[in-house]
């Protein structure tokens, strides 16, 4: 564990005159779950897209330690290498499952896509793995040949997680994975995610505005306001003893039940 899996150095992104994120630096270690919290518009998703190579930052660098090829600068890779990295070593879970899934094909094909993209050509084996993953994300295997359009919101989100994890990634980016789901479904997904993250020794960068989700899932927390990181530290420390006025306000604004 001598090298971090992902390091960001002074990552900045502007849209015209508007600063979306400024000079964000951090290291993510193998097996660690890093939460990025902040209100809407604070630059969380932009930062996530910059980290995942989906957006080119205006300044700074993102380095990733690959399985076999040593460390690489994510934004200096050729597009082909970056896309390969994104579908073999990474996963990306969208808030809206429809963006991350192919709604027109069955759940099995959705899960199998990454396998086929890297050359799997045995239908029976692909299907077997898809069925296995359906079980691991707690979807009834009977639904394997159904399209995600017939799934509930929570099932779609679980399917999206399975589709990402099938290629055995080391790093998963999640953008509000439980946003827009009702509370009991959220709880099940959080439970599932916690089990998978521990079981597979995944590293996760998790964007959320829900401090409850951050408390449950993350080890470390970065608080963003207006595109800059105002506070970071161990999750419990940040949430129980917030130092920055904005973090104090965030923590104080959780509605008591």
């Amino acid at each position: 564990m001598s090298t971090p899996l992902l390091s960001a150095r002074d990552v900045s992104k502007r849209f015209g005159g508007r600063v979306a994120c400024r000079d964000v630096s951090f290291d993510l270690w193998p097996g660690e779950v890093l939460g990025i919290v902040g209100e809407s518009g604070s630059g969380k998703t932009t930062l996530l897209n910059c980290l995942a190579g989906r957006l080119l930052p205006d300044g700074g660098s993102v380095t990733y330690e690959t399985r076999s090829a040593g460390s690489v600068d994510v934004h200096r890779l050729s597009e082909a290498r970056r896309r390969l990295l994104a579908r073999t070593e990474w996963g990306f879970v969208n808030q809206d499952a429809r963006e991350g899934l192919r709604m027109g094909v069955s759940a099995g094909a959705n899960i199998g896509e990454r396998l086929m993209a890297v050359g799997a050509r045995h239908y029976g084996e692909i299907r077997g793995q898809a069925a296995d993953w359906m079980g691991r994300v707690e979807i009834d295997v009977e639904r394997l040949d159904d399209r995600p359009t017939t799934y509930s919101g929570g099932m779609r989100q679980r399917l999206q997680i399975a589709r990402n994890l099938v290629s055995n990634p080391r790093l998963v980016f999640m953008d509000e994975p439980t946003g827009g789901l009702d509370v009991s479904v959220q709880a099940r997904i959080l439970d599932l995610l916690r089990g998978l993250v521990e079981g597979l020794h995944l590293s996760v960068v998790l964007v959320t505005h829900d401090l409850g989700v951050a408390r449950l899932l993350t080890h470390r927390l970065m608080v963003m306001q207006g595109g800059t990181v105002v506070e970071q530290g161990l999750t419990d420390q940040v949430l129980d003893d917030p130092q920055h006025p904005y973090t104090q306000m965030l923590v104080a604004s959780i509605l008591p039940v």
Binding site: R102, V105, E113, R114, I126, R127
Partner: peptide, 9 residues
């Protein structure tokens, strides 16, 4: 991969 997905389907 997506072409193979259509055959899978």
């Amino acid at each position: 991969g997506v072409m193979q997905v259509s055959l899978y389907e």
